[in-house]
Design a protein around this nucleic acid. Sequence first.
DNA 1: TAGATTGTTAATCGATTAACAATC
DNA 2: TAGATTGTTAATCGATTAACAATC
Lengths: 222, 222
Amino acid sequence: MDKEISQAVIARLPRYFRYLGELKDSGVERISSQELSRLMHVTASQIRQDFNNFGGFGQQGYGYNVEYLYTEIGKILGLDKKHHLIIIGAGNLGQALANYMNFERRGFIFTGVFDINEKLHGKMIRGMKVRPMEEMQEFVRENNIDIAVLTIPKEGAAAAAEKLVGMGIKAIWNFAHVDLDVPDSVQVENVHLSDSLIKLSYMINQYENELEEKEKNASGEA
Amino acid sequence: MDKEISQAVIARLPRYFRYLGELKDSGVERISSQELSRLMHVTASQIRQDFNNFGGFGQQGYGYNVEYLYTEIGKILGLDKKHHLIIIGAGNLGQALANYMNFERRGFIFTGVFDINEKLHGKMIRGMKVRPMEEMQEFVRENNIDIAVLTIPKEGAAAAAEKLVGMGIKAIWNFAHVDLDVPDSVQVENVHLSDSLIKLSYMINQYENELEEKEKNASGEA
DNA sequence: TAGATTGTTAATCGATTAACAATC
DNA sequence: TAGATTGTTAATCGATTAACAATC
C-alpha cells in the first residue's frame, strides 16, 4: 500500500501546478528545485520532497523538465479527467462563479444551475437555464454529475448536501457557511469566505499591536 | 515579548468564533472543551492549547462561559474594530461579494467600488456607484480605507497591489490568481478559487484510486 | 570526466496529543 | 468536600529542513 500523502502536500500541489503552467507558457523548458524555490518562496528541499511523494520526475544534474512535470502533476490532480458540475443556488455568488470561473479550462464542465426561487427558473446563466430543485435528482443521474457547487444560504445547506449524497454525487464545493457532515465517499472542499476575511482582520490587528509594542519598547529604552 | 502564535492556530480561530456565535445564539451558557471537541471534531486538548495561547478564558470544574469566550475571541480577531473596505474590480465576482458578503455584520464597512471599465462607472452596486480607478488614491485617503478587495483579472493585480501599498492600505483580500509581493506591513489573504477546485479534483481522484486498489486486493485474495 | 542536481536518509523543528496537578 | 475540568508540562507524532550519496 502507498504511503498516505499529507494534507499539507496536497494543499501545495495546485500552486506548483500554477507556477509550472506559467513557466511552460513563457517557454521555459527546464527548472531546478533551487530556481523554483526562489520563484515560489519555499525551500528547494520541500519541493523535492513534495514531488518525490509521487515518484521521481527529475533527473540528476539537469533538474525538472517543465512540460513533463506540469503534465504529471496535472494527472496527479485528476485534471486529465472531465468533471461534470452543477451549481446549487443561482444567487449572486452562484451566478458570479458560473460567469467568472472559466470551469471548462481545467476540464470542469458546467452542466446546470438549480434554485428554489421560482422567479429565477428559466433565467439563463452562462448558457444554462435555472432549473427547479425538484429536477435535480433526475438531472444528476442523466448527466453524470460529479461535483455540486453549493452556493445557497447556510440554512438549507445541510439538507441539500444530504440530498446530493443520496444522489451519489462525488464531491461538494461548499460555499455555505457551515461544516457539512457527509460520508467519506463524498469529498468536501470548503470555501468559507467570512472566515478568510476574519483572518485578515486578525492579521491587521496583530501587526498593529506589534508596532505599538515596538514603539513602547523603543521609547522605554530612550 | 509574547510568544509567536502559529499560523495553524490563527487559521482555526474564525471557526471557533463561528461555533461559539452559534452556541451563544442558541442560548448555550457554558461549554467544556470536551463538549466543544465533540461538536467541532477536534481534540479537547487542542482546543485548550489554542485558547491558552491568548490567556486563560476558562474555569476549572466549570468550563468556558460561551458569551465571554465569544467576546474575547472576537477581540483577538480584531472584530471589535471597524474596518473600511473597498472593492477593486466591479465584475461578476466583485459585485457578488458586495451583495453577498454581509460585510457590515462583522464591522467591515463597504465604502466604495472601483473599476477601469468606463461602461460600469456610475452603476450602483449595493448602494455605491462604481468609480474610475483614477479616483482611488484620493478616496482611500479621505475615507480611511483599511482593506482592498482585489477582484480584477490577474494581469492587473500586481500593479493594483503596488498602487494600494503606496496609498498606505493595511490589507488586501486577494481573489486574483497570483501571489502578490507586498511589504510585511501590508497583510494579504489569498482566496485562490481555482486552487481550491483543483484540490477537490485531487480528492475525487485519490478516493477513486483507493477504491480501485481495494477491489484489486480483494479479488486477489479471493 | 567534472559539475550539477536529484532522490533520499537523517536531523531538526514545530504542532498535536496525552497526562496530570492545580483549582474552581 | 468530591467531582469536574481547566491550564500546563511532558511525550509523541509529523512535517520541514539539512546533508549527501547516487547519478545524469
